Amino acid sequence: MTQLSPLFLDELAKNIKEWGKALGFQQVGIADTDLSQHQKYLKSWLEKGYNGNMQFFERNQEKRADPAQLLPGTLRLISVRMDYLPPDASFARDLKQSGTAYISRYAVGRDYHKLLRNRLKKLGEKIQQHFAELEFRPFVDSAPVLEHAVAEKAGIGWTGKHSLTLNKEAGSWFFLGELFVNIPLPIDQPIQNDCGSCTACLTICPTQAIVEPYVVDARRCISYLTIEHDGVIPEQFRTAMGNRIYGCDDCQLICPWNRYAHLTQEKDFYARVAIKSQDLLVLFAWDENEFLANTEGSAIRRIGYQKWQRNIAIALGNADFDTNILSTLKSKLQNTSEMVAEHIQWAIEQQLNKQLNTPPNNEQRLTKRLIRSVEKGLPRDA
């Protein structure tokens, strides 16, 4: 490779950050490739089985620690973030209304993977115009990359106690992506961890999935259970799921740093009408073709129709008693898969119990606490 002067590299790094922002990224940082410090945390997490059935974490551990194995010659990792919080996120309203479906706000718009990857590709091509010998490869959840570790090293933010990347000016409502390059650019410095003594995310988690600061047991996490977990959801977690049918935002909603989050400028991330604050019974009535049509280009589609039905059945069981819900569940029971039927039967039992005025449980109290925090503006209800 051509010998590059420090002056050229400094100027190029500055330009890369400007080009990245012009492409819609809110922040661009640069890190070296030494991720060995983070590998031990991954190993410990895996040894405890916290990855559940996400066996992809167990594979290619060497590649996660050594980015050059993914792109030979890699010298730097460019980390980017892009805000995704949509206008009128309606957090409190949707959580308060038990008959309304709650979908994690990262998934209410277009699937971010392709959008971010295309922007990163354009950033690589822009750099290539100024340095023809550049070799690059973009990544957005598409390979064994320790994205939060890279973001931390690149100064994008620090890893919060909920294991997500946090930023003082942006909270945590953003996507991450990486561009591997073979140029020895000057690196950015990590920023200070500012979680302090706060444990709000640990105490608000409905299933107590954050088993200790910075450690999440995925097997207990509602996001994992509704998205990654196949088959039957353990009964011990169903009530805690409430009306969350795809993912969960509770640990982000309660985080004080999200008072400073910004609304996305990307209209592709705006909430789709078909799923925004939608009634559970409306979504449950979709057949598979309607599900595929309404989730085309959405991250939701990846879970498939059966898991979608399973998740909604649990939410209907958790909803306030309604004769329409009860009759719908009973009618659906005769024409569904064995896996979904198990959850529908549970939901029917829950509705019948509510008809007898069962007192509120601890999970419902946690949700009410979360709603009160959101309504007070901590965090901001966009």
Rank of each mutant, 00 (worst) to 15 (best):
Q265I: 11
L146G: 00
E147N: 09
G304T: 04
C255H: 07
L70N: 00
A149R: 03
T328N: 10
P360V: 07
G297D: 10
D141S: 01
L46R: 04
I325Q: 02
I127L: 11
K168R: 11
A149V: 00
D32R: 01
D320W: 10
I210H: 10
G297L: 11
F269Y: 13
A107C: 10
A271V: 07
M82F: 05
L326I: 14
I222C: 11
A240I: 02
I348M: 00
R220N: 04
Y106N: 11
R59N: 00
W173S: 12
D194Q: 12
V140E: 00
L95D: 05
L116V: 06
A170T: 01
G242W: 06
L71Y: 05
R117G: 13
E296K: 12
T159C: 14
I233G: 00
K43W: 15
S277T: 06
P256W: 13
V374C: 10
S104W: 01
P213N: 00
D287K: 05
S172L: 11
G171S: 04
Q129T: 07
D381M: 15
F174P: 07
I371N: 13
K114S: 08
Q306W: 06
K307S: 11
P184V: 03
A293H: 09
Y41I: 09
T203K: 12
L356P: 02
D66E: 02
R372P: 04
Q26D: 15
